[in-house]
Design a protein around this nucleic acid. Structure first.
Lengths: 345, 345
DNA sequence: ACGCCGGGTGTTAGCGTTAACACCCGCGGG
DNA sequence: CCCGCGGGTGTTAACGCTAACACCCGGCGT
């Protein structure tokens, strides 16, 4: 900076002023400084700046170590939103979701002096770990928790993590209503692991839709997120469907489960959607080419990322919290149709 | 730090020594300092440290803005490897792959004073943009380029980007040889976009395997990575297969293409693997539950991430470059079998 | 007995930037 | 004519840390 100052014939402080867009610098002076900067290829030292301003310009993002569709898409959307705001994004992944791991990651970020943290917290224990730590910087948590309940409250603890998520419950209602609207008497649900907010909320939305329609609420079938589990469940259901007491429609907790179901049904000789209708959740790449193409719920991750960044900046500026829910949409494809008389073959 | 020093009854420099594991500190003193640190909840200021050591402890990772399976898995593996080495990971995504965008991202990282950069460069133009910029810090590029050619050379420019990748060509040979070994006379290939190294290398590997086996080398079919394209190609191939002049085996450039093929074949009434065998590439989640379960090539991303980090650390220390290729494995499932007489239905 | 050595510690001087203040100068108003 | 004001600029002092050096002291070799 001293070199630039010398070359431009000004003091280093004037160079600093130019760099920071300070108003009271004469245009001619500014140009001279700018020219000198370009000439020397000068680049300001971010560490020195951070030292004196006490701002790192970095936010930390915690995500799970899985390559699952949702978390990944969220991370990418987040990075883009952050860079648009002039922030650097530092990421850390957690494989295990216990509190100790979360604490280590948060320490990692505090050591880096991040100005805010975004936690992609799909599971309850991840969220609990965040709650119990309360880092000294604002935290935004992407977790489909308390969205419905918390939306009205204004008396939140300002240091509590702020919430944003795609409204999983609304998505599940969309899927269930779609099936009911086609004429299915009820809908069976294959739920994801119930330590995931997404699974809890999708289950709740499914139940709400059934209750609202006055339909029977069958027992949900608990599973993981994997296609393996969908396959196993599908084989059991296929037997029931053949026996005549199976569901005419199934709402799978995600597209992987739906994929497993489809395969099991296909292997059993059941026709989808005639013998049984199937809806998934996520709209993963390729779901339009499952056999048959899968009706599913699409989540707007880009919007989620931007909303998250907005929330974080508000928190950094000390503005009050307001949970944000983002509406998913239904993608109707060939795996759903009105119920048909079952044809034995 | 001064507070800690006062509480421990030492000088701030001794505190610094304890923090940096300097050998000549008496154990009792060290314990006293450690206790004071814990007591005060002291955390060293990373900016001040970076200012004086001229080391930021951060590496930058450039990745594409897509949620594609490969790049995403790589990023996660990389973060883990980096954190194990005590580095922070800053990410930046690029949506468009032109040189100007790449330059902006690299400037972003230089502004952050990263010590090294990893570019996940699946496309040729991304790699070209890196080549043309030559940042002042070491760069490792994850690109399946010149792996075979460059492996032997030792006279590389030390400032040139270092290469590491999963050996796509070997993976394609694995897939093709598997099909030939089953008795297929030749194998058709649906290639991904040829501005991707992966597509180029998989195409080359497929061709090599055919030539090595003395098999006919049919024209490759060019496509994108999408299941949509796989479906379109599949419909055309299905017609040929029915007409009797179609392939008995297809090697798809990735699992998405394979998924589209499977659906097209299924809709046309062709049986996989009896009428036509299909192999994919990637082993994406769910490929074990495609209809039928897909034989595919699995890429060891964890290993890739660690190798990448090793390479970067070597570059930072100024050690010579050596391109690294990582061997993928074949996952044999139900979509492949020896060729059968085709049965019309 | 003396000097030398080396482990253990303190003191001092930056690292490159911004904040705070001091300063100069030309202008308008009393 | 002088004073006050404010835009434009320079000077100085941090920010919190580590490197380099200075220093002390006990033990060892000569």
């Amino acid at each position: 900076m001293a070199d630039v100052a010398r070359l431009a014939g000004v003091s280093h402080q004037t160079v600093s002023r130019v760099l920071n867009d300070h108003p009271s610098v004469r245009p001619t002076t500014r140009d001279r400084v700018l020219a000198a900067i370009a000439d020397l290829g000068y680049r300001r030292n971010i560490a020195a700046r951070a030292l004196v301003t006490r701002r790192s310009g970095t936010i930390g993002v915690v995500t799970t170590g899985s390559a699952l569709y949702g978390p990944t898409s969220t991370l990418i959307a987040l990075e883009e939103a952050a860079r648009d705001e002039g922030y650097y994004v530092s990421v850390a992944t957690i494989r295990r979701t216990d509190g100790a791991t979360m604490l280590r990651v948060l320490e990692h970020f505090m050591g880096q002096a991040v100005e805010g943290i975004v936690v992609i917290a799909p599971q309850t224990d991840v969220a609990a770990a965040v709650d119990s730590f309360r880092p000294p910087v604002p935290v935004v948590m992407i977790a489909a928790r308390e969205l419905a309940d918390g939306a009205g409250r204004g008396t939140e603890d300002p240091t509590a993590p702020r919430l944003v998520a795609v409204d999983q419950r609304a998505g599940a209602r969309l899927a269930t209503d779609h099936l009911l609207g086609l004429g299915h008497a009820s809908v069976r649900h294959v739920a994801g692991p119930l330590d995931w907010f997404d699974a809890i909320e999708r289950l709740a939305g499914w139940r709400e839709a059934l209750v609202a329609a006055g339909a029977e609420v069958p027992e949900p079938i608990l599973a993981t997120w994997s296609a393996d589990d969908g396959y196993d469940v599908g084989r059991r259901l296929a037997g029931r469907i053949f026996a005549g007491d199976g569901p005419s429609a199934v709402f799978a907790g995600n597209d992987q489960l739906a994929l497993g179901l489809l395969r099991a049904f296909w292997e059993a000789g059941l026709r989808v959607p005639d013998d049984v209708a199937v809806v998934g959740f996520d709209d993963v790449a390729g779901s339009a080419h499952f056999i048959p193409p899968l009706t599913t719920v699409r989540q707007p991750f880009g919007e989620l990322g931007r909303a998250c960044m907005t929330l974080l900046l508000e928190a950094i500026e000390g503005r009050p919290a307001r949970p944000v829910a983002i509406a998913p949409t239904l993608e109707v494809r060939a795996s759903t149709a009105p119920p048909q008389r079952r044809t034995r073959r």
